[in-house]
Amino acid sequence: MTGRIEARFAALRAAKRGGLVTFVTAGDPDHETCKRLIRGLPEAGADLIELGMPFTDPMADGPAIQASSQRALRAGASMRRTLDIVRDFRGHDRETPIILMGYYNPIYIYGVEAFLRDAVAAGVDGLIIVDLPPEEDGELCRPALAAGISWIRLATPTTDDRRLPAVLSNTSGFVYYVSIMGTTGTKSVPEAEVRQAVARLHRHTKLSIVVGFGVKTPDDARAVTAAADAAAVGSAIVSRIAAKLDANGKPAPGLVEDVLGFVRALADGAHGA
């Protein structure tokens, strides 16, 4: 079965252009605004959508995404509502892949079986679960693959050639290369190292490679897609949301349009325009 993720990367390759993967946290800054934002992403140039599942203790995330997670939780985000956002999006767009990204505990508490059933029904294409390394594949990875959901893993600068086969086993959809050692959004993407890393990954896998964790500007995105299949941007986008909140934390008029405008600029960079 060729899924939406594979189809999207095939289309990008056919068009000979790099892709843009956008991250926003589900329910940030509130449920309805988030729905509008997500719906607008494909038209603004996002090729794949990562939707963060809010968690109180996002240990691999820097300050920007920590703050977005807290905003979403304060505004009443929950796993049920995250899946509702996906369902709503799927009602408008049947082609853009949606990948849920986050930490294991909210899924564990929802119940793995119930979660996979509801995620498939809502139209989720893939999962990136930061705190489930290959050593814990029995928890969710293998059940997700059996349910037809792609399991996308993070490869990092510390993932050496000895460990890479373990990281690439049971991986599908694409490989997410974390370009920096550190939490999300805290450093800038080092171009030359990324080029080398992508070449190394390609020696081990035919999967598409997305690079993220330090991609902040259209120029960063352009530099990344010169080497990789797509660039992922998260912290810079959620910071844009934060900048458009009023003193009470409510979205100021024009927030969605402003964020989508930024995504458009990132897409121009990633697409090599």
């Binding site: 489930l132 893993r153 990092t156 510390t158």
Partner: peptide, 12 residues
Amino acid sequence: GGRFVAETLMPL
């Protein structure tokens, strides 16, 4: 128990 950590930390 177990090892529920990010990939960056796993080799370490």
